[in-house]
Design a protein around this nucleic acid. Sequence first.
DNA 1: TTGTAGGCGTTATCAG
DNA 2: CTGATAACGCCTACAA
Lengths: 337, 337
Amino acid sequence: MTNKVKTITIGDVAKKVGVSKSTVSQYINHRYEYMGEQTKLRIEEAIKELGYQPNILARSLKQKTSKTIGVILANIAHDFSTQVVRSIEEYCNSSNYNIIVCNAEDDPIKERNHIDMLRAKQIDGIITLPTSTNVDIYKDLASEKFPMVFIDREVPNLNIRSVMLDNKLATQLAVNEFHEHGYKRIGFLTTSIKKQVTPRIERLEGFAEALKIKGLEINDNFIKGVPLEEIPNELNQMMNSEFPPEAILAGNDLTLIATLKYIKEHKLSIPDDIALIGIDDVPFAPVYYPELTTISQPTSDMGKKAAELLMKQITGEEQSNKLRYNFKPNLIRRSSC
Amino acid sequence: MTNKVKTITIGDVAKKVGVSKSTVSQYINHRYEYMGEQTKLRIEEAIKELGYQPNILARSLKQKTSKTIGVILANIAHDFSTQVVRSIEEYCNSSNYNIIVCNAEDDPIKERNHIDMLRAKQIDGIITLPTSTNVDIYKDLASEKFPMVFIDREVPNLNIRSVMLDNKLATQLAVNEFHEHGYKRIGFLTTSIKKQVTPRIERLEGFAEALKIKGLEINDNFIKGVPLEEIPNELNQMMNSEFPPEAILAGNDLTLIATLKYIKEHKLSIPDDIALIGIDDVPFAPVYYPELTTISQPTSDMGKKAAELLMKQITGEEQSNKLRYNFKPNLIRRSSC
DNA sequence: TTGTAGGCGTTATCAG
DNA sequence: CTGATAACGCCTACAA
């Protein structure tokens, strides 16, 4: 075993100073009000000398709050995830909360394990990013009124707040942009396989609606949600159909790259052979040839909002009944369309 | 306050079944050996009915091990970081450990806070990715023999294992590749401002050595480690010098993108006006025009190794005295050079 | 095979 | 202003 130095406790400090544990505890928790200046200083010194560090576990056990929240990511590989995590962490740290980040790798089993683990660790709340299709996991938590916020997912009848992109608007922005440039046959590709999940539904709705408004044809063969590996196949089918799409909307960063790969391999040119817009403003968008037009999500605002909502739940602060917090996507016009 | 459902404990289960707490504890810890099949089943049932979940905090408090390790990232924005985290988590989860990921945002203060927090939470070990320059923080931990592994950083005389890229080789691969293509004046740009830190030293050494071997000139003005924002400036100076570099080695993903931006803005062409190699195989490298030659790091192997080494320290398993575990970079030849 | 008792390190209550 | 004492939920001897 590792030669762990004997853990030094509040008792050791107390003994050294010659006061009781309670007094030291007061000190640690900054309740100096009725504390002699002398004792205060002596405790301070003793703590330094002994290198004492409070055991948060013990505190949490007693206080029934761990000052920690869990963040479950569907897939940490998406830029969106890491960006959101950054702002969640920033917000939480400034409220003296810590976060435990979990990566579900798009695997519902892992997701459930993570949730169990987090609960067992007595975390005070959970922020979840879009994961798999199994939303029912969360029903129990919801019925216990366990503090929880979703990002990019809504579950009906569950009374859980969601921080969402305005998905309809996102696809509409794209379609309108395509339309302005004269493209008529527009495809929509994404890796989301979750048919029933809000973002997908909304994006499709927005997509279809926008096409309709512009008087463009809706072709189901050009609208696909498939695992990443199958993107090339789908593209192949689309592009080899009689009237192939002239423009493609890529649903996220990974889809975008897969599409670019296809385009490159088939020596197509953007936007002449095929126009392109990606949802998520990838870091290389402005340096690509041509520069890529994208729809950006306000990731850091979204993360912050989620953290804020969760904190309010945890602390029991008053909050509105609003269940959905919509964030506007932003079209960044560059040259791929 | 949130209407938390009364937490149900091991005692509740015991009461319901009509046995003692210890028996239930036995069950939870899979020590069925001397347990009646009956009791076992009844406990199982009771646990389900009550929805009992063990409180890991309490357990950790008793057992003095939290089955959790901390991972401190210098900056989660680097692809390298997230990739490493993924494999660390994978390894740990399979050993029934959890990880707490912290992002220092390149800020030493945040780093220190994270360390304090992690220790207070009684984590069993720490894996740290390259952070700031203040290595002394770790000296205390080292002297306590606190389980710890570095990635991409070595600290002399500290007896802490490090998982490293073979940095010398990385720059040599690049220089050799440049040389083979006939480039003579080669620049090296990176965001690392930590002068004393191993990777930087090694990369510079490797870089200089390789230049020397190839009989190329070493120009200090072409070798720069500056904050990301200043990359354009540095490039500007280099490119406007009398004999500007014909090739640039970008030290990481962010530097690469900044460099590409400069190149684009100045309408330079790759590799004719300027050849380019990036350390870190960015996801868009194969779809860029031209495809980008990169030096990839075996991120997932490195993460796994780090986790493995840490676990051995934690469990006290025998291990070699080797302090540095070197991983070979890999040149991915594409068309930017 | 199961129960009892004590303790892990902290905080809360209430008395002094 | 400070100190005893009893929890928090769990685990581990040891006893029965």
